[in-house]
Design a protein around this nucleic acid. Structure first.
Lengths: 145, 145
DNA sequence: TATTGTTATACTCTATAACTATA
DNA sequence: TATAGTTATAGAGTATAACAATA
């Protein structure tokens, strides 16, 4: 059963990655944009700690998002060492597309289940996630150790 | 919800990998040993196709398992190009340990759920897996394209 | 002295193509 | 000519350490 969960989960992640690649995003990029939207002005270090990615990887990911004009690094007012990360207008539009794609993905993935069954599945997964200490909204795919 | 599934699934995979590493196996190695046990004498090509790993990666994985004396490559009687893969006696013992670890893992992962709820979760996941065309026992973690 | 962002580096995983020996 | 196994190689992803600017 643990295998089954892992199997379905990996399949879901893979299909989502395929879908968002259509708008030029990788899954980690999409996840990071969601986190920045949820905490505008966050620093790279704080973001790295929150999603458990190494700071060196954050740099590369933000570089990519900045090159696509989806995220901007603003100078922080308090600490001249750090940046305040924000989505650009284009980034916000892209995030909207991303959520539309996520909804389609969800619909496709759960096609075999009724609404009631989907709610039931969500509740069981949520109970496991809570008990296992998973941070809501943070994918363990990025996690060292 | 798709995200939740992927999150819990990735967590499950990660914890399993940590657990089997205690007996010196990686998760792909453990999976491959299970497949060989289920189809003794299978060739590397057939194995590669079945689990959707590239033949070149199979070579490296089987090299590793052979170096640990868990798998042996016997000469095929029909086709001198191909090998027939078998678990060694030590490999069978190791697979037993692996199943014990998998059972512990399952118990730990589902600690938040009652027996009835686990069965319910398994059934819902199985329905998704069937409808999505996932091969039972084959993890999409190894899958190109 | 410690911290933020960054670069350099290494190791694994994954993917492609080319080679060899058989068929 | 096609196939099984193999090798070489290149590209991601991930981890470590070290560096410059600032605190």
């Amino acid at each position: 059963m643990a295998f089954l969960l892992s199997q379905v989960g990996a399949h879901a992640a893979r299909r989502f990655a395929e879908r968002v690649s259509a708008i030029g995003l990788s899954a980690p990029e999409a996840g990071l944009m969601g986190q920045i939207a949820a905490a505008p002005g966050i620093s790279q270090q704080a973001l790295a700690e929150h999603v458990c990615i190494l700071p060196s990887r954050i740099v590369a990911l933000i570089d990519g998002l900045q090159a696509k004009s989806l995220v901007e690094r603003r100078a922080s007012s308090e600490d001249r060492r750090s940046y305040a990360l924000h989505l650009t207008e284009r980034g916000r539009q892209m995030l909207g597309d991303m959520w539309r794609i996520a909804a389609e993905h969800e619909e496709g993935l759960c096609a075999a289940l009724s609404r009631a069954e989907r709610a039931q599945l969500a509740e069981l997964c949520r109970r496991i996630a809570d008990q296992q200490g998973l941070t809501p909204g943070v994918h363990p795919g990025f996690k060292q150790l």
